[in-house]
Design a protein around this nucleic acid. Structure first.
Length: 203
DNA sequence: AAGCGGATCGTCT
DNA sequence: GACGATCCGCTTG
């Protein structure tokens, strides 16, 4: 049932070399793939947010490099996983050249394969609740800071990858980012228009 | 249907 | 010592 993983189809590092908003646009419609030791988990990326590094008051990198956000200042294409609210993880990909801290936050996926594993990890069965939200998708994919922070998402041997299956994204909507107090009006959230798996947020 | 608050802890001031 | 790039359940209308 699970589609065969095609090693070597992970997006290349150059893909993430651009500015965060450009990378986010390009990433919509791509796949997040967790190979894992058992059932593979695959989701199509339907919602992302761009964070602009040290120039962006809403970004974790705004106050400069710290132990927590160090990955953001490294080379592009690496996973930055952080822990919030005492119980949730969120996944980002680092963008831009080494030394610049832009990144893209994964906010929602459309689950394609490994739904049972996701449901088990989440303790929830309904597909709409599996991966629609940054904390939810991390739980569904078993993403933690200890296991995944700093992982090179472009490496063929990585357990976590971003792949291209040839899907063409349709209309893209751009809105302000969610859950932040600074730069609250900046349009930097990108979603696949009309996709039901985009997160439903409450003000 | 929508709004509110509790859970829970690593990170930085 | 305060505060999150969140989620869920309980309350109220």
């Amino acid at each position: 049932m699970a589609r065969a993983l095609a090693p070597g189809t992970a997006l290349a590092r150059d893909f993430f070399l651009d500015a965060p908003d450009l990378v986010a646009r390009k990433m919509l419609g791509k796949l997040l793939v967790r190979a894992g030791s058992g059932e593979a988990r695959v989701g199509r990326i339907v919602e992302l947010e761009a964070y602009f590094g040290e120039a962006d008051a809403a970004a974790h990198a705004f106050a400069g490099k710290t132990k927590r956000n160090a990955v953001l200042f490294g080379p592009p294409g690496h996973a930055y996983v952080y822990f919030v609210y005492g119980m949730h993880y969120c996944l980002n990909v680092s963008c831009e050249r080494e030394g610049r801290a832009g990144c893209v936050l994964f906010r929602a996926l459309e689950p394609l394969d490994g739904l049972e594993a996701m449901a088990r990890a989440r303790g929830v069965a309904t597909p709409l609740a599996l991966t629609s939200g940054p904390g939810r998708l991390c739980q569904a994919f078993g993403i933690t800071r200890a296991a995944d922070n700093g992982t090179d998402l472009t490496a063929p041997e990585s357990d976590l990858q971003i792949q291209d299956d040839g899907f063409k994204a349709g209309e893209i909507l751009v809105t302000p980012r969610i859950g932040i107090s600074k730069e609250a009006n900046r349009p930097a959230r990108f979603v696949l228009a009309g996709n039901p798996f985009v997160s439903k947020y409450k003000g």
